[in-house]
């Protein structure tokens, strides 16, 4: 649903555990990325000096991901663990505990411009969740809610702003330099080169948005994953589901959204790669909007898909949005 997003500039630096590891230059840096978009950033910064494992792969939904023992083993043997932070990875705490890793856990949103999640201020959970000992850990103990998390005060989907993506990349370069001083020059050079590419991408997005009439810049997606895109580029997104895909939209949420779609005269509606399209198809049917395609919100596509990299993803999204609106 439409929510007021307030800008909160968080000043910070890379968060890491006290222990940082240096690896011999001959060995590649073992990097675990929490999801596919971060893995792509890491690949661009690390080049052939890093081996990367993405926990949540292409088209995977990190909001509801269930970590496996093999993930704990990967984190346990990693030199660097790259995460989004802002409580995006609800599984992170228990995974890190299970892994007993000594690697730095680097929150890539630190230092970025972070939007407040005003949904949380009004949010009271819908289930009779057990809150056992030690927070999340004992939620698991009581088993009822497969250990889930509450999204915090901030909208975690910061990568949907290219400006923030640049912060992710800088943080990755810093983390790699801390772990592998011998490769630092390479990491910095790669980060700079990639930074230029995503700066150019941002110009493309702005130019595409400029071609969309202002009165037609309201669209519908499955969940509130595009708050940063809205803030940066001026497309208004409405969604039946909130910041997380964890909880399904209620009938009242959907009815309110349909009313708002009619009031705000939404131009187009889109499915997302990480969510079930059924609800969007239902809303499309009830509002007469045609589904304008698939947007990539919280994960890249597979290798052969249209959004196999971050740059391809952002380009695909704006092209799809623009195409559907102009055709409406």
């Amino acid at each position: 649903m439409s929510r007021t997003l307030k800008l909160a500039a968080l000043v910070g630096v890379i968060t890491s555990l006290p222990i940082t590891l240096s690896v011999a230059a001959a060995e590649n840096l073992k990097v675990v990325a929490s999801f596919s978009i971060i893995a792509d950033f890491a690949r661009n910064v690390g080049g052939d000096r890093v081996d990367i494992i993405a926990l949540v792969g292409p088209n995977g939904d990190a909001h509801v991901y269930e970590p496996k023992p093999a993930d704990a083993a990967a984190v346990g043997s990693a030199d660097v663990v790259l995460v989004n932070g802002l409580q995006f990875e609800g599984f992170l705490q228990r995974l890190v505990e299970a892994s007993a890793t000594k690697a730095p856990i680097v929150e890539l949103t630190k230092g970025g411009e972070v939007l407040r999640n005003t949904e949380e201020e009004h949010h009271h959970d819908h289930d009779n969740a057990a809150k056992g000992e030690e927070g999340h850990a004992a939620e698991a103990e009581e088993g009822h809610e497969e250990p889930h998390h509450h999204h915090g005060e901030s909208d975690p989907h910061a990568w949907q702003s290219v400006h923030n993506a640049e912060v992710y990349v800088k943080n990755i370069a810093n983390a790699f330099c801390a772990a592998d001083a011998a490769g630092c020059d390479t990491y910095r050079a790669n980060a700079e080169s990639y930074g230029e590419q995503i700066e150019a991408l941002e110009e493309e997005i702005k130019a595409a948005v400029a071609e969309i009439p202002e009165g037609k810049r309201t669209i519908i997606t499955s969940h509130d994953a595009f708050g940063y895109f809205e803030h940066e580029y001026g497309i208004k997104f409405l969604a039946p589901e909130g910041i997380s895909t964890e909880s399904e939209a209620s009938a009242a949420d959907v009815a309110a959204l349909i009313k708002q779609i009619r009031q705000d005269k939404a131009s187009a509606i889109f499915v997302e790669n990480v969510t079930n399209p059924r609800l969007i198809e239902q809303i499309a049917s009830e509002t007469g909007l045609k589904v304008g395609g698939e947007l990539y919100s919280d994960a890249l596509s597979g290798e052969n898909g249209p959004a196999a990299t971050y740059i391809e993803m952002m380009r695909h999204n704006i092209t799809t949005i623009k195409g559907a609106i102009l055709a409406s």
Partner: peptide, 25 residues
């Protein structure tokens, strides 16, 4: 073990309780 996710427990007929590390197997 629902709290310490990396552990499970197995009791065997010799009267021993074993702590099983499910990450290392």
């Amino acid at each position: 073990d629902p709290v310490r996710a990396k552990f499970a427990y197995v009791f065997t007929e010799d009267g021993q309780l074993h702590q099983l590390d499910v990450v290392k197997g």
